[in-house]
């Protein structure tokens, strides 16, 4: 369970003061397939970053499970992200010098998992995203859709509590988007994996079970579909 209470985020460089989030309150339960939508500059990515511990709120609390991540130190946050949160980024952000298998395996290495466990899980995950025949390819040898599927497999590798996906389909064509959404939806259905997207892609919004609309740093609507 993700519980965001009274979260504000203000950017102030001494000259310009921007209130990116203004008192956000939201709860996301395990197993949800949630899309955070809104126009550019609405605060959806800031909200996602704060939920993911990539950014800290100016005020308020973000409680994941039983941990208030707003109170964690920088190093504790990094460890927390490694063990509890999976990330999928808009531009895939795979490690270019590693193969698909090595990219997926990477987080498990950081978690000091055994080689046998790494091998088993990597194979399983790449199979789950339909890339079992691409394991030795490097990112530049794969299409955007394939790279994003590797990114999903990587996000799942560390056995996170939930996955945050920041506009995951923004760089994909329709077929790849449909394929990626199918995979994530299946993982949500079959393994009860929680997905939280920030998006303005209608195809993602259409598949989401819950759509939270953010505008001017506030939640405008929160609808279960």
């Amino acid at each position: 369970m993700i519980k965001v209470t009274h979260v504000t985020k203000t950017y102030d460089d001494g000259k310009v003061r921007v209130e990116a989030l203004r008192g956000i309150n939201v709860e996301i339960k395990n197993g949800e397939f949630t899309a955070i939508v809104g126009p550019s500059g609405s605060g959806k990515t800031t909200l996602l970053n704060i939920i993911g511990g990539l950014d800290t709120p100016t005020e308020g609390n973000v409680i994941i499970g039983e941990t208030n991540i707003a109170q964690l130190s920088e190093n504790q946050l990094i460890d927390f992200r490694l063990n509890h949160i999976g990330f999928v980024f808009q531009s895939y952000n795979l490690i270019p010098v590693l193969t698909a298998k090595e990219n997926v395996e990477f987080l498990m290495l950081l978690q000091n998992k055994s080689e046998a466990e790494r091998d088993e899980r990597t194979t399983k995950l790449l199979k789950a995203v339909g890339l079992e025949d691409q394991i030795n390819k490097k990112p530049n040898e794969m299409s955007g859709g394939q790279q994003q599927r590797v990114a999903v497999a990587r996000a799942l590798a560390s056995k996170p509590d939930f996955i945050l996906a920041d506009e995951p389909t923004a760089n994909l064509d329709s077929a790849s988007t449909a394929n990626l959404l199918d995979i994530m939806y299946r993982l949500n259905q079959e393994e009860n994996m929680t997905f939280v997207f920030s998006t303005h892609d209608q195809r993602v919004i259409d598949r989401a079970k819950r759509v939270i609309t953010v505008e001017d740093g506030k939640i405008l609507s929160d609808i279960y579909t």
């Binding site: 490694l82 063990n83 996000a155």
Partner: peptide, 16 residues
């Protein structure tokens, strides 16, 4: 920068 930022994001600690 972006890649290093990603590594830190996904849980690679700064010592590494």
């Amino acid at each position: 920068k972006k890649e290093l930022g990603m590594l830190i994001s996904v849980g690679m600690n700064k010592r590494k």
